[in-house]
Computed example of a mutant assay.
Amino acid sequence: MGNKKTNKSEQTLEIHAKEMLSDYVTVVIWSPDGATLGVCSAAGEVMLVKVGAINELSLQPLQTATGKSTDCLSFSFDSQFVAAGGQDGKVRIWRVNSGELIANLDNQRVWVDKLAWSPNCNQLAFSMGRYVQVWNADDDIVEITLNFDSSSVLDLAWNPVVKYLAVSGYQGVKVWNGEDWDEDPHILSVPSVTNAVSWDTSGQYLACGNMDNTLIVNEWGNSEPWVMEGFPGKVRQLAWSNQNTLSGAPLLAASSSGNISVWEKQADENVGWEGLALEVHENVVNAIAFQPNTFLLASAAADGQVCLWYEAEQLLQILEGAEGGFSSLAWHPDGQFLVGGGCGGELLVWSKSMRAKGLGRL
C-alpha cells in the first residue's frame, strides 16, 4: 500500500512528556504552524501548551474549570486565533500570542459541540442546534446563519481548497458555497443520519460516516457516490492520509465501535474502494489520525491503548499511559510528535524514537 516504504525504526515513538488536566480530555489539536498545542476538558478547561525538551510541557490556561464541558477547539488557519465551544453555549475566541479573549458569542442555552475555522480565511463556523453560524474575525460579525432544518447539526467540515462548508445530520449532508451563502446548498442524501464528515486534503473527496452502519465517499463533481457496508455499528471517526497511493487517491480510515477499516481506491472504477480491517482494540475507538506525509495510522481507544499501524496495515507499536482509556489524539504537523488525551485527564506527548524498535509498549 502506498508509494514507498519507510523504515519501521523511523516510525516508532517514545514518551516525551506528561501532564494532567482535572477531567476527561475532550480535544487535543495542534496549531497549523506547529508552535502550540491546544487542549480542553470536560471540566471546561482550555489550555495552550508549548512542548519543550524531554519531560517539558508549558501550560497556559485560557479558561480554568467551569464545571461545564468544553467540547470543541479549533485554531485559525494562520494560527493567530483559537476558538472553543461547549456545554454553556458560548463560543470564545482568544488571540494565541497574548491569550487575550477577543470575542464571547452567547448561543443562549444551545450546546455548541462542533466548530471549525476555515482553512484559508478568518471565518469560524459553529453549530447552534439546527443552525450553523459563521463568524468573521476580521469584521467581528456573524456573517451568516445557515439552517440545516431537518435535525440538529452533528458535524461540519470546510473544504480545504475551495470555500465550501459541509454540514451533516438527519438524511445526509448539505454543502454551502461560502462565496455566495444565499445559494441553495448542494444536498448529498443519505437514507439515515450522517454523524461524521471529512474532506480529504485535496478537497476532491468527501467521506460521510453514517448511523445505518455505512460509509459513503463522494467524489466532488461525480453524481455516483461509493457506498461501503458491513460495519458493526455507526461509523464514528474518519481520517484521510495527506498523501496518495499509486491509484492517485489518499487512504481513508474509518472506525466503528472497536473496529478500524482502511479503504484504498482501486484503479478499476468498477471496483471502487477496497477495505482492510485492523482488529486489536477491545473497546470503542475514540480517535484515528494519519501521521502527516506517511501512511502511519494512529488509533486511540477506550481500552487504554494507542496503536500505531505501519503503512495502515500492520500493528507496529502500542502506547499506553491512560488506564481509564484514551479519548483523543493529534499528530504534530511535521509528524515529530503525537499527543494523546485520556479519559482521566491525562495529556501524553510522544516523540519519534531515535532507536530502532520492534513491537513495544511504552
Rank of each mutant, 00 (worst) to 15 (best):
Q237P: 13
W350T: 00
P185F: 06
P185C: 04
A322I: 04
N293T: 14
F231T: 00
Q266E: 12
G360W: 09
A249F: 03
N218L: 07
L252Y: 01
D212L: 01
D182E: 14
L276F: 12
V82W: 05
L246Y: 14
A249W: 02
Y310T: 06
G89N: 10
K357Q: 14
L165S: 07
F75S: 02
G248Q: 02
L101S: 11
N97W: 11
L105M: 05
V227N: 03
G38K: 00
V51W: 00
N210Q: 00
S98E: 08
D303F: 07
G38W: 02
W94D: 04
S127M: 04
I141T: 13
V227I: 06
Q314D: 15
G358K: 08
E179Y: 08
T64I: 14
A43R: 00
W226I: 07
D106W: 08
N293L: 15
V96D: 03
A330E: 08
T26D: 02
W350V: 01
W226V: 10
Q80E: 15
K163A: 12
K352E: 02
S327G: 05
K174I: 09
G248L: 02
E320W: 15
S223I: 13
V306H: 01
Q243C: 11
S152R: 11
V27Y: 07
W309V: 00
G345V: 08
G34R: 02
Q204S: 15
F77S: 07
I141M: 06
G340D: 06
I54S: 12
Q63H: 11
G2E: 13
G304C: 04
A289V: 12
E10G: 11
I288N: 02
L338A: 07
N159C: 09
N210C: 00
E323K: 13
D139R: 06
G52D: 04
E183Q: 11
G89A: 08
M128C: 12
E274T: 14
N195A: 04
D180Y: 08
I318M: 13
D138C: 05
H16N: 06
A300F: 06
M354L: 15
K50N: 09
T145Q: 05
G275P: 10
P225T: 01
N259R: 10
V153E: 01
D182C: 15
L297R: 03
N55P: 05
N222H: 06
G344S: 13
V112W: 02
P333C: 13
G345F: 03
W158T: 02
R95W: 14
